[in-house]
Design a protein around this nucleic acid. Structure first.
Length: 277
DNA sequence: AGCGGGGTGCCACCAACAAA
DNA sequence: TTTGTTGGTGGCACCCCGCT
């Protein structure tokens, strides 16, 4: 089987990585978004996109165990399917033109957005030519989770503001305001002290990555650095959802590493910061 | 071990309508 | 006018298991 070239990571495991062929496949799929083309190119999807993404998930899971052991990735489940949900969409093109993966709290469902009854905040990576993206937080949580987060923000507006307006989070340009409500949600006064935050429906931060950044072995270190910077927000949100953080250093037995440390003690390894400078 | 069929569960919807 | 809820509705990948 043809495979892209490999590199030896610091975790001493061979990892397949994204190559120009990965982006070429996605560009081709954007031009020929139909089943015959996809099936003819399926080998490229498997080798150039899916295999490297799975390897990346595996590698990031090992690294997450060091600074965010409650966040986990699984090569079999963390990658989003390439098939679009076309049920009720006017755009019936069958395939996404990006590949993405999601690292979730181990105590929560791996589902994302409104489909996830018991979702969590987590970390996200999205591969797309010219539009690759790294993000963290929770995207369009279902109603019960959204209500919990809003209640927590209303309860502790200052604490939430400290996390979101921290220079580490500001590096990503603040919360994504793409789907904000125009008025205050039901139950909250227009002049609520936390009004600034209560109109959000998603609580995510992130940044675009260049094609150069996503190709090659440097991606792993880059994601590690960005994920570390995003963890205070992820942990604040998960705490609001009743999901506890874990202590680092027990990567082999992450499930037993749960503790109830306060979020303020979760400062990641300073070395990680240099990775995104 | 490899293959194939069937069961199971999942997927960054969307429009209409009720409620405020 | 805007938020929040509900109902409608396919197609695919994965997994298990029996068969060869």
């Amino acid at each position: 089987m043809l495979r892209p070239y490999r590199f030896l990571s610091t975790a001493s495991c061979f990892c397949v990585m994204f190559t120009p062929a990965s982006l070429a496949f996605l560009r081709g799929l954007a031009r020929h978004n139909n089943k015959p083309w996809f099936e003819a190119q399926r080998a490229s999807y498997e080798n150039d996109v899916r295999a490297p993404m799975r390897a990346l998930i595996e590698e990031m899971d090992v690294r997450l165990a060091r600074f965010a052991p409650e966040i986990t990735g699984d090569p079999k489940r963390s990658m989003f399917r390439i098939n679009r949900d076309i049920r009720f969409s006017k755009d019936k093109s069958p395939y996404k033109t990006h590949a993405a993966c999601w690292f979730r709290h181990q105590g929560a469902s791996h589902k994302v957005g409104g489909e996830a009854e018991e979702g969590s905040a987590g970390l996200y990576f999205h591969l797309q030519p010219g539009k690759s993206f790294v993000g963290g937080g929770i995207w369009m949580p279902p109603r019960p989770a959204l209500n919990k987060i809003r209640d927590a923000i209303a309860e502790d507006a200052r604490g939430f503001a400290q996390v979101v307006e921290n220079p580490r989070a500001r590096r990503f340009g603040g919360l994504d305001d793409g789907a904000m409500l125009k008025r205050m949600p039901r139950g909250f006064a227009e002049d609520h002290p936390a009004a600034q935050w209560l109109r959000y429906q998603s609580f995510t931060i992130g940044r675009l990555l260049t094609d150069k950044q996503v190709l090659g072995p440097g991606l792993v270190k880059l994601l590690e650095g960005d994920f570390a910077l995003m963890m205070p927000l992820v942990r604040w949100l998960n705490r609001a959802l009743g999901l506890r953080q874990a202590t680092a250093g027990l990567n082999a037995t992450k499930g037993s590493a749960i503790s109830s440390e306060p979020v303020s003690s979760s400062t990641p390894d300073p070395e990680l910061y240099t990775a995104v400078l």
